[in-house]
Amino acid sequence: MDDWLKDSTEVEASWVTVDLAIFTVRGDQLMVLLIERGVEPFLGRPALPGGYVQKAETLREGALRELWEEAGIDGSRLHLEQLGAYGDPGRDPRGRVVTIAYLALGRELPTPVGGTDAKRAYWAPVSQLINGTQELAFDHSAILADALEEIRGKLEYTAVATAFCGETFTLSELRTVYEVIWGHYLDPSNFRRKVLNTEGFVQPTGERRLPPTGRPASLYRRGAAWLLSPPLLRGTGYPA
């Protein structure tokens, strides 16, 4: 037997999984979808939804199936994209497992319902997870941190924040999305100026919404631009 062929037969078998970081905004908080694992390893520990990709599935098909089976959420209507691959040895005690992480954003997502190997599914505040007080199963804490930073960066250069808004929205509602995800207060006047000076970001509808108190607020919808020029940089209290 050739040496290279002999060596190849001794390589440990690998498996491919998918994991999903699903974000939404609820009650002015950034929330992420978690499951409570109902099986070993990490029985009873919180984790991102996900699982093994079946033989005849694409990665995306596997991600959508796992999201539906473990949380009862239809991912076909979400802004879903690949975040990256995670394959450090030892990340999964069952063996050599490489996972493809997906990032998804959605507005007013339903209450999840646990299924298959998920004992339950629920929305958890991201702020309570990124401070390290609660460790997720596998390497999901690292995946969550990467996903959060990816969203924060995308808010600077794209119109993805509108994915958390309704078809029409006020600038105050849009600003809240930025504040919740970036984690700091934004000066309303500076934010308004920056948004309106970014060509194609938002488009006025000509309509107004009457709040419970105060003056009517102008309504906007997402504009034609996806990439923002100039970008809305995070700064230290308002977009630069």
Rank of each mutant, 00 (worst) to 15 (best):
A21P: 01
A21Y: 02
I22P: 00
F23H: 08
T24R: 14
V25K: 11
D28L: 09
D28K: 12
D28W: 08
L30F: 04
M31F: 06
M31I: 03
V32L: 06
V32R: 05
V32M: 06
L33D: 04
L33I: 06
L33V: 05
L34K: 00
I35L: 06
E40H: 14
E40W: 11
P41T: 05
P41N: 09
G44Q: 10
R45A: 11
A47Q: 10
L48I: 08
G50N: 02
G50F: 03
G51D: 03
G51K: 00
Y52T: 14
V53E: 00
Q54G: 14
A56N: 10
T58E: 01
L59S: 04
R60G: 00
G62K: 00
G62F: 01
A63T: 15
R65N: 07
E66S: 06
L67R: 00
E69T: 10
E70K: 11
A71Y: 04
A71K: 03
G75D: 03
G75L: 02
S76W: 04
L78K: 08
H79G: 03
Q82N: 06
G84T: 00
G84S: 02
G84Q: 00
G84K: 01
G84H: 02
G84N: 00
Y86L: 07
G87L: 08
G87N: 15
D88F: 13
P89S: 05
G90F: 07
G95A: 03
R96S: 15
V97T: 13
V97W: 04
V98A: 02
I100G: 01
A101T: 01
L103M: 00
G106S: 15
G106R: 11
R107E: 04
R107W: 02
E108H: 13
E108K: 15
E108D: 14
T111W: 14
T111M: 12
P112D: 11
P112N: 09
V113W: 09
V113I: 15
G114M: 14
G115P: 11
G115E: 13
G115N: 10
G115V: 11
T116P: 01
A118W: 07
A118S: 14
A124W: 11
V126Y: 13
Q128C: 10
L129T: 08
L129Y: 09
I130M: 13
G132A: 07
T133I: 11
E135K: 13
E135L: 11
L136T: 03
A137V: 03
F138C: 00
F138P: 01
F138N: 02
H140V: 07
H140L: 10
